[in-house]
Design a protein around this nucleic acid. Structure first.
Lengths: 152, 152
DNA sequence: CACAATTAGTTGCGCGCGCAACTTTCCTCC
DNA sequence: GGAGGAAAGTTGCGCGCGCAACTAATTGTG
């Protein structure tokens, strides 16, 4: 392998921010997956549905898709899995029978209550490698980027 | 939909850093994909292989997998696609005939030279929404997180 | 020097994803 | 109030991914 010799603007992948964000996000997800996959048998889409339905009872698949920015088919399948496993319940809305109102079953509520503190603890552990000032600056930058990209 | 009422530590997904990183990385990738997908017909794995082979001529699939942290089968298939499209060439190494030495073909080199400035420009556009100080703090935080997670 | 263990790379398989098409229900407008 | 269009959610399809198993070549060990 030869080393690069050009004097032109180079693109070194490990220093390229889009690549670094992808890699970082994948690693953080992997770090979190230990909890919801191995200990609760949930995959990312199911975990996101649980996390969304938990505090917002009676929400719809549409709402979950919009707030997590997951494709609606991905949401639909995650919900089907959770219903099959009796962690959430579905009932068609009285005022719009196209919509499905979602809520946690008692078992789902227990799973949710067990999961949330562990997830928050993992987030805390991750961000503990940054100083308080660094952390708040980092989150502010995230917010700016989110606005710029039309997220948030 | 009812609003949350608990006084307990809540987990609101749009404020949860691991989720935000995933969403941000996906959006940035999508933003970049306009270039390498629509204008050059490359998917992410192929783009990463091109970007790695470009400056490091004669590198191996193993090297690409390690430096991009892609699974070796993903790298293998990306390379196969690029060889089929005559953008890179493969030749077995003299000293270890298991290894495949990779280099860009002339057409691949032209694609690479056209792609790199566009990709760097997109990165610049993205980061332009941060001030210089914010940006360098952001990249420093990325570096700290990368070290913490065993990347980098 | 032969045999076991390791490494580079490829491939069969099952699965989850996104797209597009579909059903059902609601809304709009004349 | 009936017809056309839009929205919520589901499903068939093709595809790319990761896992595990495989081939071929190399290295280590007695």
């Amino acid at each position: 392998m030869s080393t690069p010799s050009a004097g032109r603007p180079a693109l070194h992948l490990p220093g390229f921010v889009p690549f670094r964000l992808n890699r970082l996000a994948a690693a953080v997800s992997e770090h979190l997956a230990d909890i919801y996959r191995e200990r609760f048998g949930l995959e990312i889409p199911e975990w996101r549905v649980m996390a969304t339905v938990g505090p917002v009872r009676g929400c719809t698949a549409q709402y979950i898709a919009a707030s997590t920015r997951m494709h609606k088919t991905r949401v639909s399948r995650a919900i089907a899995n959770l219903v099959r496993r009796r962690l959430i319940e579905r009932s068609s809305s009285a005022r719009d029978r196209r919509q499905m109102r979602l809520r946690l079953t008692p078992a789902g509520r227990r799973t949710y209550e067990a999961l949330v503190p562990l997830a928050l603890e993992r987030e805390r552990q991750l961000l503990a490698c940054l100083s308080a000032a660094q952390r708040s600056a980092f989150e502010r930058s995230l917010a700016v980027l989110e606005v710029f990209l039309g997220l948030a």
